[in-house]
Amino acid sequence: MKKVLFASVPFNKDHVTLALESGVDGIIVPEKNVDGVASLSRCTVLAAESMPVLTLTEKSVEEEAAERLKKGEQIIIGHGWEIIPIENLLAQSDNVLVEANTTEEAHLAFGILERGVDGIVVTADGITQLKQIVAECKLSMGTVDLVPATVTEVRASGLGHRVCVDTLSVLKRGQGMLVGNSSAFTFLVHAETESNEYVAARPFRINAGAVHAYTQLPHDKTTYLEELASGDEVLIVNHDGSTSIAVIGRCKTEVRPMLLIKAEVNGVEGAVFLQNAETIRVVDTKGTPISVVNLKKGDEILVHTDVAGRHFGMRIEEEIKEG
């Protein structure tokens, strides 16, 4: 996970309060303020005196920065940095921090050499964009490709244990989790954002499916639904493919009547078991949630297709067939 820190130098109490509320990973303040800030929140608080700022105005400064990073020192590359010098530092160290005061600068820093810097440091000049920077850099996980799949079968399949995932986030229409019998073919299962005369909306909840199913996680990993637990991070996917992170507050595993849903993309078929209830929905190609009780053969819904082959949730190259 990439780090976002805020440097309040000179010290500004209001800025520090906003930074803590924004969810930064750490606060940098003058040494005399460290204890006071540390008492406000369970957040890393660092002394500015121990984290010098180096501005890469010439090659000799870049060389100094490289040497100090090799020794394990904590330094910050100040504003005015360019991509090539940062690439040089990244080739020699995994602990590169750079100042960035806009979302554009933050995205640029986190994208250098496709792995990016270890963290960015936002200064007082970026305080107005801090919440957006944290949200986009720590919650956003890029995009996934969603494609239309044609439903080939929907049928009752008896009772089974299903997992209901309650998150710490209020989700919006069009958002859900990717779930499927195979990690190579997952269905966009919609959050319970819709209400009816019998049931109120639960926008924090995804009734995700049977215990054995795979779900996509952040950082290109998967896990079984049964293994999810409070405090874990899950990947939330919007109908347009944009993604974000949500933290699980609670998982409920209960026996419920289930449906088997199968769909096909270019001759490849995937399947998922979902609870047989009106509140459980998948998503059509327009981003509209469709209740599984109304789903029928020939409908088009959104899925994510991938290459099969996972070991403990991590991608591997292996010949594998999952049904």
Rank of each mutant, 00 (worst) to 15 (best):
I133S: 10
V61F: 06
V61Y: 06
G241N: 10
G298W: 15
G241V: 00
G72L: 04
T285C: 01
F110R: 07
A191S: 12
T167Y: 11
R202L: 14
D25P: 01
T186N: 05
G160Y: 11
M314V: 13
K71R: 12
R202W: 15
M177Y: 15
L46W: 11
F273D: 00
G309M: 04
S140L: 04
V45Q: 06
P10I: 03
L56R: 12
E317I: 00
I290A: 02
L217R: 14
N266K: 13
G270K: 12
L217P: 15
L89M: 10
L56C: 10
V61A: 02
E62N: 00
E21V: 05
K3Q: 15
N294T: 10
R310A: 07
L108R: 15
P218C: 11
R115P: 01
A106Q: 05
E136A: 04
F6V: 06
A200Q: 06
G176V: 02
T222R: 05
S242K: 02
T128L: 11
K296H: 13
A246G: 13
E197L: 11
Q129Y: 08
D220E: 10
A184V: 10
R42A: 07
H304F: 05
T243Y: 12
I77L: 11
Q74Y: 11
V96S: 03
T186G: 01
I127R: 02
L5Y: 03
N88I: 07
E264A: 13
V255N: 09
S169K: 13
L113V: 08
D232M: 15
A156K: 14
E104T: 13
D14N: 09
N33E: 01
E318W: 08
E300P: 01
T222E: 13
D284F: 06
E82H: 03
G313Q: 05
N181M: 10
G231N: 08
E31N: 03
E269S: 15
R281I: 05
L108M: 12
G23D: 12
M177F: 15
E254T: 12
D240R: 01
L69V: 10
P218L: 10
R202N: 15
H311E: 09
I127D: 07
T279P: 00
T103A: 02
T285E: 04
L54N: 03
E233Y: 14
L56S: 09
T102C: 09
H219K: 14
V45N: 10
L259I: 12
G160R: 08
V237W: 10
Q132C: 02
V151I: 12
R68V: 02
G313S: 10
T305M: 07
G270W: 14
L295E: 04
R315T: 12
L295Q: 14
E227I: 04
E278I: 15
T17L: 09
S22N: 04
T285Y: 04
A208E: 05
E63H: 09
Q92G: 06
P203W: 12
E114L: 07
S291D: 05
G158H: 08
K172V: 08
D232G: 15
P203K: 00
F204R: 03
I86Q: 14
G78E: 04
K2D: 02
V247I: 06
E105C: 09
L5I: 03
A149G: 09
P52R: 07
E153Q: 12
I236P: 14
